Simulated assay, not measured.
Amino acid sequence: MAKYIREILQLLDDYYGAEYRCYLSHENAWQLLTATILSAQCTDDRVNQVTKELFKKYDTLEKLAAADISELEQDIFSTGFYRNKAKNILASTNMLLEKFEGEVPRTMEELTSLPGVGRKTANVIRGNIYGEPSIVVDTHVKRISKKLGFTDQEDPEKIEFELMKVLPKDHWISYNTQIIAHGRTICTARKPKCGECFLAGYCREGRKVTGRKDDM
Rank of each mutant, 00 (worst) to 15 (best):
M1N: 12
A2T: 15
K3R: 11
Y4Q: 09
I5C: 00
I5N: 04
I5M: 04
R6K: 05
R6E: 15
I8D: 00
I8K: 03
Y16I: 13
Y16S: 12
G17N: 09
A18I: 11
E19P: 02
Y20S: 00
Y20R: 07
C22D: 05
Y23E: 11
L24I: 12
E27N: 07
L32E: 05
L32V: 03
T34Q: 09
A35V: 11
L38H: 08
C42V: 12
V47N: 06
E53P: 00
F55A: 01
T60C: 06
L61P: 00
K63T: 06
A65S: 04
A66D: 15
A67S: 00
S70C: 05
L72P: 04
E73C: 02
E73M: 01
I76V: 03
S78V: 14
Y82F: 15
Y82L: 09
Y82C: 03
N84I: 03
K85I: 05
K85L: 04
A86M: 02
L90V: 03
T93I: 06
T93H: 07
N94S: 09
N94Q: 12
M95I: 11
L97Y: 06
E98H: 07
K99A: 08
K99M: 11
E101M: 01
G102K: 03
V104P: 02
L111H: 02
P115D: 10
G116K: 05
G116A: 08
N123M: 04
R126A: 01
R126T: 04
G127S: 13
N128P: 00
I129V: 14
Y130S: 03
G131Q: 09
E132M: 01
P133G: 09
S134Q: 10
I135H: 12
I135R: 15
I135A: 08
V136I: 12
V137D: 10
D138K: 14
H140Y: 06
R143Y: 10
R143Q: 15
S145R: 13
S145Q: 13
S145M: 11
K146Q: 15
K146G: 11
T151K: 10
D152W: 14
P156S: 10
E157L: 11
K158E: 15
I159N: 11
I159G: 08
E162T: 15
L163G: 14
K165Q: 12
K165S: 11
V166D: 04
W172G: 10
S174W: 07
S174T: 15
Y175T: 10
T177D: 14
I180Q: 02
I180E: 04
A181P: 02
H182F: 03
G183F: 00
R184L: 05
R184D: 09
R184M: 15
T185I: 03
I186K: 05
R190A: 10
K193D: 07
K193A: 13
G195A: 12
Y202S: 02
E205D: 06
G211N: 09
G211F: 10
R212Q: 14
D214S: 06
